[in-house]
């Protein structure tokens, strides 16, 4: 009940502020008009194409980033030498803001899907990699020594000690990467003009259709909420066997 009251209050506020003239309704149209604009959009094919484009870029980028991130993470994590030698490079490359690549993406791929993918993959990759490395570092030394004392092969150690320990972190990484991938997909569309919700928002803004623009933004928010909920649900279901579904690692 209480949970719904907050949302209801927000909607009420968004309706009343412009209606009472407290904010200019050219800037913030009342909630009802945004909802109407949303309904109108939902009847057009172009809207659904845009949603599809955004989700396609999101999904492809996420799959590529996660495959690369997990592979690189397990490889680097399993070989201590690699871990020490790559640490500084990772620390240097990770904080490079993905948007710095925008001009490069434009030159290489123009306004195509490739531009979006480049940004999405770059941003999501680090999320996965860093979490996997945290997970690998979390391996219990006692478990590791137990495995060694039973003369497990290197592969068996990865399979039975390292991977199960890292798995919760892998899921955290996937969850974070899924959220970041959506942000970058929409950003690329907005700034570069690649097809998708972002470019439709830019068009709505430049043509002064504020209610439509707000409606589209609400759609991106709903997509984000859906992705977060889905990722959390999947994580809980797939990791229910694990003694603790771990919290996010500071990093």
């Amino acid at each position: 009940m209480l949970r719904l009251s907050g949302l209801a209050g927000l909607l009420g506020l968004a309706e009343l502020l412009p209606r009472l003239g407290l904010v200019d309704d050219d800037y913030l149209p009342p909630a009802s008009r945004i909802v109407a604009a949303l309904a109108a959009e939902a009847r057009t094919a172009a809207f659904w194409t845009a949603v599809g484009d955004t989700l396609t870029a999101w999904a492809i980028g996420l799959v590529i980033a996660c495959t690369l991130g997990v592979a690189a993470g397990v490889l680097i994590g399993a070989v201590p030498v690699l871990r020490t030698w790559t640490a500084s490079t990772i620390e240097f490359l990770r904080p490079i803001p993905s948007v710095a690549l925008i001009p490069l993406a434009v030159l290489l791929y123009g306004t195509g899907l490739g531009s979006t993918l480049l940004l999405v993959v770059y941003a999501a990759f680090w999320q996965v990699l860093v979490q996997v490395l945290h997970g690998v570092a979390d391996v219990d030394p006692v478990a590791e020594e137990t495995a060694r004392s039973f003369r497990f092969s290197a592969w068996a150690r990865v399979r039975h000690v390292l991977w199960p320990t890292a798995l919760p972190y892998v899921f955290t990484g996937l969850r974070l990467a899924a959220a970041v991938a959506l942000v970058l997909a929409v950003t690329a569309e907005l700034v570069i003009g690649a097809p998708g919700l972002g470019s439709v928002i830019a068009v709505a803004q430049s043509s002064g259709a504020i209610a439509t623009m707000d409606a589209l933004i609400v759609v991106t928010g709903l997509l984000g909420v859906a992705i977060n909920l889905g990722a959390r649900l999947a994580e809980r279901r797939l990791l229910s066997w694990h003694q603790s579904v771990r919290g996010e690692v500071a990093g």
Partner: peptide
């Protein structure tokens, strides 16, 4: 907290860069 959480979750899920056109408006 119970009342605010769904609202906050929504705002966090909105990709921040789309705020640029909204804020440019006013």
């Amino acid at each position: 907290r119970a009342a605010a959480e769904p609202v906050l979750e929504f705002f966090r899920a909105v990709p921040p860069p789309v705020l640029v056109p909204v804020i440019m408006v006013f």
